[in-house]
Nucleic acid binder design. Structure first.
Length: 270
DNA sequence: AACACCGCCTGAGCGC
DNA sequence: TGCGCTCAGGCGGTGT
């Protein structure tokens, strides 16, 4: 489940493969993953990739033509660089680009919650991203307070709202609430200044730790050793409902907030 | 107008 | 062994 740290990790690993490279061709194996016409021009064929940017969970490949391709990974999306040509493609590969260096760039997305959105200009990208809140890695207490102000819903629901804060998903929302000592069901507008400050610090700290670890879920995926639970060791609450809190040993509670499974410590999160 | 909620998808994990 | 069930969740669309 890619959230901001996993998407940032993908961005960083993609840069050396793509930036400065020209896209020489594309194979569209499933056109429905592309919003609008899946033409070569829209998919940057003939363009040299000038940079790869990220805002929240969205990736954008910038072509020197000025055109842009936005990639959203959704639940199960991957962008894979396949230098050597394998005999067989993995399953659920929807788009394959070829670069001037002879590499293949695959967009794979089994559940198809993700997708590709071509845009005609960098201005269109900025317009698109302006409807998102500030990037969660750069969040500060003032910006978070502005996003929570006047919202009566649960603080976790607000954290998951990409127009409030871009990049937080279910895992890191729970982890951030735990770190801040805030019960996720609290009404957002009832947090005091001190609590908003703690929450902003917690969101940043949790995400930075995950980014430097290469993304907790992604690393789990890359290991591919069939070793379940390896990455869970890093999480305080996510996926640990019913188990003992690592701080106070109280049994962690599970519930549903904003249609998402939510785990919290009834003692640490007052 | 803010917010809740649905439905899209596949694979893992489970009980039988 | 294998079947059928539940669960996982980002996010656009629709309902209240």
């Amino acid at each position: 489940m890619p959230e901001l740290p996993e998407v940032e990790h993908v961005r960083r690993t993609l840069v050396p493969h793509l930036v400065g490279q020209r896209l020489t061709g594309v194979t569209v194996r499933r056109a429905t993953v592309v919003a609008g016409p899946a033409t070569e021009r829209a998919l940057l064929v003939g363009s040299t990739i000038a940079g790869i940017e990220r805002h929240g969970k969205q990736l954008a490949m910038l072509g020197d033509s000025g055109r842009v391709v936005v990639v959203q990974l959704g639940m199960s999306g991957q962008v894979l660089c396949d230098a050597e040509s394998r005999p067989e493609l993995p399953t659920h590969v929807h788009i394959v680009w070829r670069t001037s260096r002879g590499a293949s760039i695959l967009f794979r997305d089994p559940r198809r919650f993700g997708g590709i959105t071509p845009l005609e200009s960098r201005e269109a990208l900025l317009a698109r991203w302006s409807s998102l809140g500030p990037d969660a890695l750069a969040i500060n207490p003032g910006a978070l307070a502005a996003g929570l102000r006047g919202s009566r819903r649960a603080v976790k629901a607000a954290l998951l709202d990409q127009s409030v804060l871009a990049g937080v998903g279910n895992i890191y929302a729970d982890e951030a609430c735990f770190r801040a000592g805030i019960r996720p069901r609290r009404s957002a507008h009832r947090l005091n200044v001190c609590e908003v400050e703690r929450l902003a610090e917690a969101v940043g700290a949790v995400l930075r730790a995950a980014v430097s670890a290469g993304g907790s879920t992604l690393r789990d995926y890359l290991d591919a050793d069939g070793k379940p639970g390896e990455y869970r060791r890093e999480h305080s609450v996510y996926g640990r409902g019913g188990e003992a809190c690592r701080v106070c040993a109280t049994r962690l509670r599970t519930g549903t907030i904003a249609q998402r499974t939510t785990v919290w410590c009834p003692r640490c999160q007052g």
